[in-house]
Computed example of a mutant assay.
Amino acid sequence: MRAVVIHEFGEPEVLRMETVPAPEPAAGWVTIAVHAVSVNRTLDLAVRAGRYARPVRLPHVLGADPSGVVVAVGTGVNKRRVGDRVVTSPFLRAASGTQGPQLLGVQAWGGYAEFVTVPEDATYLIPSALDFPQATVVSRHAPMAFHLLDAKANLSADEWVLVMGASGGLGGVGVQVAKMIGAKVIAGAGSDERVASAMSLGADYAINYRSSDLEAEVMRITDGRGVDVVYENVSDPVLFPKALASLARGGRLVTAGSHGGGTVPLDVSRLYMKQLTIMGSTGQTPSDTERSLTAAADGFIRADIHTTLPLEACSEAHRLLEAGEVFGKIVLTITHADKYHA
């Protein structure tokens, strides 16, 4: 099969299309003919550059969220069959003979390839209303948004939420999930163009936190009360204190990201005086993914796609994302012979 392989960490030029052996499914695993896979800052760009927190063994194939058609099943598989249209979770249980759980595209070879193997319980059926790029984008971030806002923050319909980085992949779907729950949403973004993008996703109010005082604007919008929940996946040392200060008494801050650096100052006095809670989690569940796909198929969540490019253009896709002018996801697509179409 063809796959984009990296033999060394570095710039986008280290991504090279090669011919490698096609994978065979282990017991309980399935092989998928990949039709779409997205490009992500952390799980693709950071891994490629050698900046990811977990060790990555070279040579390596990136791609955390491939979707496609099941073309082979291992022994013991009973939930999936050849021809199923599926999307994958990046969280994999270990194959027989390997150690511990793996992260697709980090510890295990990922979806920048014509075929990929994953455990059957890491696959989810794609509703007929969604195509492969849509399913890939929805499954990448929406499950985490549901997990953080619903399971962790317990956001309710009568509450206010501040979504930071609201035009990004995780932020944009956070706006939509919060609106689906029924909350009043304030979107925070770093430029007027990104503010407009967040408003188009359904936010009630928006703040350019690079040109305005975030805390002051939140307090103005909420008549001095503050928000009940901050959905904060930026972790910028300048913005984080402002976001925390925007919380009302008893407020909750949830996070599963640190694109802005990750090390931030914390006002502990404010934390205990206002009885605030800070929660970090990457623990999305299968039901979060299933709920996300259903919500997208029913029209409540939109897959925000900037562009689709063929797998051969993956270096260009990485450069485009690194340039920082992208609104929505970049999706790589693969064209297969007719026998690999559902």
Rank of each mutant, 00 (worst) to 15 (best):
A135L: 03
G250L: 11
T294S: 08
D204C: 09
G74H: 01
A248F: 03
Y52A: 02
T263D: 11
P66Q: 04
V138M: 02
R85K: 13
K242R: 15
P286Q: 06
E325Q: 15
V230L: 07
D304M: 05
S67Y: 10
D288S: 10
I278K: 04
M279I: 15
A303T: 05
M199K: 15
Y231S: 12
V5S: 08
Y340P: 01
A72T: 05
L271F: 15
G251F: 01
F240M: 03
D44M: 09
Y112N: 05
V175E: 08
A64N: 13
G190R: 00
T98E: 13
M17Q: 12
M273R: 15
A189C: 00
E215H: 14
V177M: 09
A157S: 15
I181A: 05
I207W: 02
S292E: 11
Y272R: 13
G324D: 00
L149G: 04
T117I: 00
G50W: 10
P90S: 11
H306R: 02
T289R: 08
V177T: 05
L170D: 00
K339E: 13
G168T: 04
F132S: 07
E114Q: 13
V185Y: 05
L266P: 04
T294G: 03
L104H: 06
R16N: 07
L103C: 06
D304N: 14
E215T: 15
I181F: 10
S128E: 15
